[in-house]
Design a protein around this nucleic acid. Structure first.
Lengths: 125, 125
DNA sequence: ACGAAAAGTTAACATATGTTAACATTTTCC
DNA sequence: GGAAAATGTTAACATATGTTAACTTTTCGT
C-alpha cells in the first residue's frame, strides 16, 4: 500500500485521529496517544516530513499535507474496516480495537477486500 | 501465548514443518524454507536452544525438545486455523498462506477463538 | 515581562533482526 | 584418503524502533 513502515503508518494515522479531535496536533499529544516517548515521536515526524506527508518546523505544531492526509485516510479506513469485521466476527469492541491496529499492517489487499465483502453481505441482512 | 518474538516463533514453526517432511533438520534447510541467511538461522537456533526448545551442538542437526515440540505445535495449529479461516473467507490459497504467517503473530486469543468458532459453524453446513 | 512549566530536540544507548564476508568443520565422492 | 563442495559459525555491519538524560525553546500564569 505504501512506503512507510508499520510504525510510521501508526504515527501518521494518529495525526489524523488527533486532528479530528482537537484543533491542533502537538508531538506530546501523539506521544500520549501512542504511548511512546517524545524522542520517538520526534524521529517519526522527521521521517514523515522527509516523505512529504506532514508539514512542520522546529517546535511547531504538525499538519498533514494533502498527500499525507490521503494516505492517513487510507490507513484509517483500513483500520475501521478491520475493526468492524472483527466485531462482526463476535470479537469485543476493545479487543477489536487492539487487534485491528496490528492486523492492518500485515494483511494483503486481497484479504482486506474479502473482509469488506463479508461486511457488506452481513450488513445487508 | 509465549515468550518468543515473532521471528523466533517462525523459526520454531519451520523446524516442525521441516521435521515432518524430512528425516532430519539442518540449518541450511531452515534458511531456504524461510528465505533468510545462514547466520540468521544460526542466531535464532542459539536463542531457541537457550530457551530449551531445541537440542543442538555445534555443527549438529536440530531436534525439537518436548517443550519445543509442544510450542511449535501450538504455533502451527494457529497457523493452520487462520489459513483455513482466510480460505473460508474467500481468500486464495496462496494469499491465505502468506497472510496467516503474519496474522498468527499479532492476533489476540479472543480473535483466534472467534475464528475457530466461525470455522466450526461454516463447516457444519 | 519574567520565571516556571510544558513541549520539543538531540545524543547516546539498547534490542531485534536481517545482511555479507571470512573462516571452520563436515560431508561427499572419485 | 584427500580434495572439493556443502554446511555451519563468527564478526562486523545496517536498519528500525524504542528508551532515558540533558538541553533548548516555547508557552503560560501572575
Amino acid at each position: 500500500m505504501n512506503f512507510l513502515t508499520k510504525s510510521n503508518e501508526d504515527y501518521l494515522e494518529a495525526i489524523l485521529i488527533l486532528e479530528e479531535k482537537y484543533d491542533r496536533v502537538l508531538s506530546v499529544n501523539i506521544a500520549k496517544f501512542l504511548n511512546v516517548s517524545k524522542p520517538g515521536v520526534n524521529r517519526a515526524m522527521n521521517i514523515l516530513k522527509e516523505n512529504g506527508l506532514i508539514e512542520k518546523t522546529d517546535y511547531s505544531e504538525i499538519t498533514l499535507t494533502t498527500k499525507g492526509r490521503e494516505l492517513a485516510n487510507q490507513v484509517y479506513d483500513k483500520h475501521k474496516t478491520i475493526k468492524s469485521f472483527l466485531i462482526q466476527l463476535g470479537v469485543s469492541e476493545e479487543t477489536a480495537e487492539n487487534d485491528c491496529c496490528l492486523i492492518e499492517h500485515v494483511i494483503s489487499n486481497e484479504t482486506y477486500e474479502k473482509m469488506k465483502l463479508f461486511l457488506k453481505k452481513e450488513t445487508a441482512n
